[in-house]
């Protein structure tokens, strides 16, 4: 039993509860169908952007952030790429995807190959639609800005983890009049994308995008489970803050014990 000594029980409890909530949501969705969802304007604008590019005869550009595959946002972005790839395949619209990481290059090609196959347009898939530029952050931004100025894409998807290059990319897209749909969980870059893009998937919306776009029952069910986790979190925040206050003000020993236990659990 010595190996149990190093176990972080707070993490185990949280992960087990969160997993149970997700499984509950998925099971419920399988039995009763997915729950009604609120609209996310940025997601509805994606097909509009691809349609616009097709009508204008100009390409669609997709940038999956500037981080490697070990970043969860890049993984989420590849899920959205699959849906966007299916749209461009069905519309017969050219897709350009510059990348700054070799793993993202290979994963992007795999995702698009499958998207084009599922759209019945395998012959239209060209591996060179996904290209490697440079691992350097601003070298990548300089190249993408140049491509935007020369190819003048009608729709640009900036989906993933971005840093200081976010405004450089979004501003270049705005200058050529592209319809831009951005999505990121990088809180420091969201203001730039909100200012320069037509639609933005803010934080959590970005992670929910794949479920919305694919319509997959399990993924839509997991959204309900996630909502349950957020409800519990809101409850812990409000009740916890109130309890800490009352315990401090009243000095009740029993309440102070519960407060200390809760704070110790959260602190790890």
């Amino acid at each position: 039993m010595a190996w149990l000594a190093g176990v972080h029980w707070d993490l185990v409890v949280v992960l087990l509860l969160a997993t149970a909530a997700l499984l509950w949501g998925m099971r419920r969705a399988r039995r009763h169908g997915p729950a009604p969802r609120r609209r996310i304007a940025g997601l509805e604008a994606m097909s509009e952007a691809v349609g616009r590019a097709t009508e204008m005869g100009r390409p669609v550009m997709y940038v999956a952030g500037t981080q490697d595959l070990d970043d969860v946002q890049t993984v989420a972005s590849l899920g959205i790429l699959g849906a966007v790839g299916e749209m461009t395949a069905r519309h017969g619209c050219e897709l350009i995807m510059p990348t700054d990481r070799s793993l993202v290059l290979t994963a992007g090609r795999e995702v698009l190959r499958e998207s084009y196959a599922s759209a019945g347009r395998s012959d239209d898939f060209v591996p060179d639609m996904v290209s490697y530029v440079s691992d350097d952050q601003f070298g990548f931004a300089a190249r993408v800005d140049g491509v935007i100025a020369r190819r003048r894409p009608a729709a640009i998807f900036l989906q993933g983890a971005f840093y200081a290059e976010s405004l450089l990319l979004a501003e270049a897209g705005a200058q050529v009049g592209a319809m831009q749909v951005a999505g990121t969980a990088m809180s420091h870059q969201l203001p730039f994308l909100v200012a320069a893009c037509d639609h933005v998937l803010i934080g959590e919306e970005f992670f929910a995008a794949e479920a919305y776009l694919t319509g997959d029952v399990d993924r839509l069910g997991s959204l309900r489970g996630q909502d349950l986790v957020k409800d519990v979190t809101i409850g812990v925040l409000l009740i916890g803050a109130l309890m800490v206050t009352v315990a401090d003000v009243s000095g009740w020993a029993q309440l102070a014990w519960v407060r200390d236990a809760l704070l110790a659990f959260l602190e790890g």
């Binding site: 993490l11 925040l237 803050a241 800490v244 206050t245 003000v249 704070l263 959260l266 602190e267 790890g268």
Partner: peptide
């Protein structure tokens, strides 16, 4: 889970409301 979830809740709850 540790730094972006539990630690954030702790930082919000711990000071109380007063």
């Amino acid at each position: 889970v540790r730094s972006d979830f539990l630690a954030q809740i702790h930082a919000t709850v711990a000071p109380g409301l007063v």
